[in-house]
């Protein structure tokens, strides 16, 4: 082959000759928009025609409400009339405190338990027994012990978000690839160095996925717990229920979902960041 010969262009398969509407993502987005439009249309017509129970707001009303709440997030007319931004911040603060405390306990304890088969066997019954308990079952106990609704909310977040992190951390540490440990051993690495440089980084994907599950649970639980407390998004929903404002409840559900989604995506990105080609 001589260099002067031009590359036979038409022999190179083109990367994508499909028309743009054949692209999978564009198709998915189209389907999403179509289904959303149909749903809103059904809702709007149904609410106007009285297909549902009395008092169901129309889609346009609800979207207007949503717009109003989103554009006026921070006003404060006392605890029963608080901007949704304030309520969101209150909920996030409770979740953050309870969740961080839980993680600070669960990760180190999980590492310790994971490294010792004896500790694993000894503590597993506690975890197995307490893990399936509904978070709200702790509420009366929390109120009785702490005599404070704020602290009780944090306590419930703490107690319900500790288990997934603990279990995943233990699992990750107990199942560190033996080859990595062999490498550390042949080099004569000290126990502490092996823990820091090998065991924890090796278990990090499991630890982060535990943290992700815990975060999801904390966000689920806070809304339920706040219905019985006094402020926050959960209380907002409860309060709007008492006001019989279904539109506002729908707005709150949407915002809770959206925030949960963002938090989850944050942890998904973190998971990817610590994976380094593992489990993919």
């Amino acid at each position: 082959m001589t260099l002067s010969q031009p590359t036979p262009v038409d022999l190179i398969p083109s990367v994508s000759k499909d028309p743009w509407w054949q692209n999978e993502n564009i198709k998915a987005a189209g389907l999403f928009a179509l289904s959303l439009g149909l749903f809103l249309l059904f809702w709007e017509i149904g609410a106007r025609a009285g297909w549902f129970v009395k008092g169901v707001p129309t889609a346009t009303e609800t979207i207007k409400e949503l717009w109003w709440w989103v554009t006026n997030p921070f006003y404060n007319n006392g605890p029963n009339d608080l901007g949704i931004g304030w309520n969101l911040l209150i909920s996030l603060r409770r979740v953050a405190i309870g969740y961080i405390l839980a993680s600070l306990v669960a990760v180190p304890v999980g590492i310790l338990i994971g490294m010792s088969p004896v500790a694993y066997k000894a503590f597993n019954p506690y975890v197995q027994l307490l893990k399936p308990v509904s978070p709200l079952a702790w509420l009366p106990l929390g109120l009785y012990l702490l005599r404070d609704s704020e602290k009780t909310g944090i306590f419930i977040i703490f107690i319900s978000s500790i288990w997934p992190t603990l279990i995943n951390t233990t699992f990750g540490v107990a199942n560190v690839n033996q080859d990595y440990l062999d490498v550390a051993n042949t080099l004569g690495s000290s126990r502490l160095r092996t823990i820091w440089k090998v065991i924890i980084p090796a278990a990090l994907p499991n630890i982060v996925s535990g943290l992700r599950i815990s975060m999801g649970i904390a966000w689920l639980v806070i809304v339920a717990a706040e219905m019985l407390l006094g402020t926050g998004l959960g209380y907002f929903i409860w309060n709007e229920w008492n006001n019989l404002s279904i539109a506002n409840i729908l707005v709150a559900i949407f915002i809770i979902g959206l925030v949960g989604l963002l938090l989850d995506n944050l942890f998904a990105a973190l998971e990817k960041f610590v994976a380094f080609g593992r489990n993919s």
Binding site: D179, Y180, D182, V274
Partner: peptide
């Protein structure tokens, strides 16, 4: 009596630390 740095080991499946 045990492992030590006087012997270097090459593993069949490389055993590199993926995070390093």
């Amino acid at each position: 009596t045990g492992p030590g740095p006087d012997r270097g080991m090459v593993f069949q499946n490389y055993a590199l630390m993926p995070w390093m």
